[in-house]
């Protein structure tokens, strides 16, 4: 991909995005383009707008400036068009957000059946396959309340994949997990990256970023400070702020 960067059009293009909460500036003129198949990891201190940036990508947040294009279609919150865009973007949340009244299988099957209007048999076959992929085939009939955090997050990943999305957004997927279950979730995410899925991941897992990320985007105070391959951004950053951030994290 790095040999011919302009050969394919980006799947996602963000131009001069500005996001404010009342008067507070959260995102300040953010530009970002993501190529199909690319794994982009957003790193940076807490409260620098990384999660907000993800929510702007699928139109969960209204933006105050700039533009977001997904597969060349503008993403604008509170429009009919954005509902259609979301069918192609899977989102995984820090707090899983599984539907507690449905079984794990029910969670995975709901949107494909109701949003994509696919037949139950078709969706169930795909869902069972996805449970194998996230290594939970024995837990498909459990309710979310009966699953551990790591299991719930893997169900949430299966739920997102069931829509056959062309972009996956991960919003701190392992931050709410017990340390011993973090690895299971990261393994599944690594599998997805190897399959060539396009992913944008907000995380604090530097190891994952280094081994799985194609590109690291370092953000601070609502801006992209610098971006590039992991070995450059994590180990040899140019900017002082980036050096300070990784210096303090990697010393731990």
């Amino acid at each position: 991909m790095s040999t011919e960067p302009a050969a394919r059009p980006p799947i996602l293009r963000i131009e001069k995005l500005v996001k404010k909460f009342s008067e507070r500036l959260i995102l300040d003129q953010v530009d970002l383009a993501v190529q199909p198949g690319e794994v982009v990891v957003l790193l940076g201190p807490s409260g620098t707008g990384k999660s907000t940036l993800l929510r702007c990508i699928n139109g969960l947040e209204e933006i105050q400036g700039g533009q977001v294009f997904f597969e060349n279609r503008p993403v604008v919150a509170n429009t009919k068009n954005v509902i259609d865009v979301r069918k192609h973007i899977g989102m995984i949340f820090q707090s899983f957000n599984l539907y507690p009244h449905l079984t794990a299988l029910g969670n995975v099957m709901l949107a494909p059946m109701k949003v994509l209007k696919e037949s139950r048999a078709e969706v169930e076959a795909r869902a069972r396959e996805l449970f194998r992929k996230v290594r939970l085939e024995h837990r498909a009939d459990a309710y979310p309340g009966q699953l551990s955090g790591g299991e719930q997050q893997r169900v949430a990943i299966a739920r997102a994949l069931a829509m056959n999305p062309s972009l996956l957004l991960f919003d701190e997927p392992t931050s709410a997990l017990d340390p011993e279950t973090v690895g299971d979730v990261l393994d599944v995410m690594e599998d997805l990256a190897r399959e060539g899925r396009t992913m944008i991941v907000v995380t604090h897992e530097i190891g994952f970023a280094r081994h799985v990320g194609d590109r690291i985007v370092f953000m601070d105070e609502g801006r992209i400070v610098e971006q590039g391959p992991p070995e450059v951004i994590i180990d040899a950053p140019v900017e002082e702020r980036t050096r300070k951030f990784f210096g303090s994290i990697l010393r731990e």
Binding site: G90, K114, M163
Partner: peptide, 29 residues
Amino acid sequence: GRGQWLAAISAGMTPLQVFRYVIWPQALR
């Protein structure tokens, strides 16, 4: 919870679908 709305909306549901399949069944209980 807000997370339920976010999950359902992110999956491409219309507002009516969000209520019907995610919010109302939980609220009813």
